[in-house]
Amino acid sequence: MTPASVVAPAEDPKRLADFEARIARGETIEPKDWMPERYRRQLIRMMSQHAHSEVVGMLPEGNWITRAPSLRRKMSLMAKVQDEAGHGLYIYCGTETLGVDRHDLILQLLAGTAKYSSIFNYPTISWADMGAIGWLVDGAAIVNQTMLAKASYGPYARAMVRICKEENFHKRQGFEIMTVLSGGTPEQHAMAQDSLNRWWWPSLMMFGPHDADSPNSGELSRWGIKRKSNDELRQRFVNMTVAQAKAINLTIPDEGMRFNEATANWEFSAINWDDFWRVVKGDGPCNRERLAARRKAHDDGAWVREAAAAHAAKQTESTEAAA
């Protein structure tokens, strides 16, 4: 299924061939360069989804800022959520280089017509979730974004390089929260294990459907936007994470997991894709809450944005009158 927004007119075959040759040579595409309309639209779709994910992703963790259990944890959680806001802002600005307006993208998110990462539709019900999200969700994002840092579109690739540095910091911070909890009191250890149990499978789903079921993958890889498949990235993440869980004495909730000596991969059980599609389509535990929170912030802020615009307009008027 191809979203209507991505359908585009046929391109001049000569220009398209030149463009694809540039991609094949590993050249970077910049905003002023010619690009096929579908390339532009795929990028807008991907980058805006990414920006929306950063912004919606502030909510599940923001939920624990007022309950962080020490002043140091409170500060680092605030700083993390603030970083995610910065990522959102930075990627929205990158998307604007493709000729769209940030404001319109935000309206699509609020209208429920734009997607964001489904992982943020799960609830954060314990402090350990601040650890699991940093460790697993930021960890999975790093695997994905390290690949995107080599994307053919310059502004996106550069945004990813910068953002990845901060995501690495978030991952370390999350892992450290999990380490402390797992080695703490029996209740704290149970809290950490319960959190891993809840976040493990949704984290694997973050890489998206199997390659065979991923509608946009073919074109995205041909144009050098995605250089690795969903399944490859997922496997890389699992291989990394198994050892980390073991190091902090937590058990990955997959009894069928086996190490394959020949491939050196940790093979995992089948993912419940029905669950994945249910959450994508809007019936996750928090889809409604997340959008409602974004809409409320937007609506409550309307008078503030209007005031700022009105004040700026008056300033311009008075400067012009003085000139």
């Binding site: 912004v55 502030m58 909510l59 923001g62 800022i65 605030m78 959520v81 603030q82 806001a85 910065g86 959102g88 802002l89 929205y92 929170a293 409320k296 912030a297 409550d300 802020g301 309307a302 503030v304 944005r305």
Partner: peptide
């Protein structure tokens, strides 16, 4: 945090 009138002001 997460509920500001604009992203810039949230930050």
């Amino acid at each position: 945090c997460g509920h500001g009138p604009t992203l810039e002001e949230d930050i």
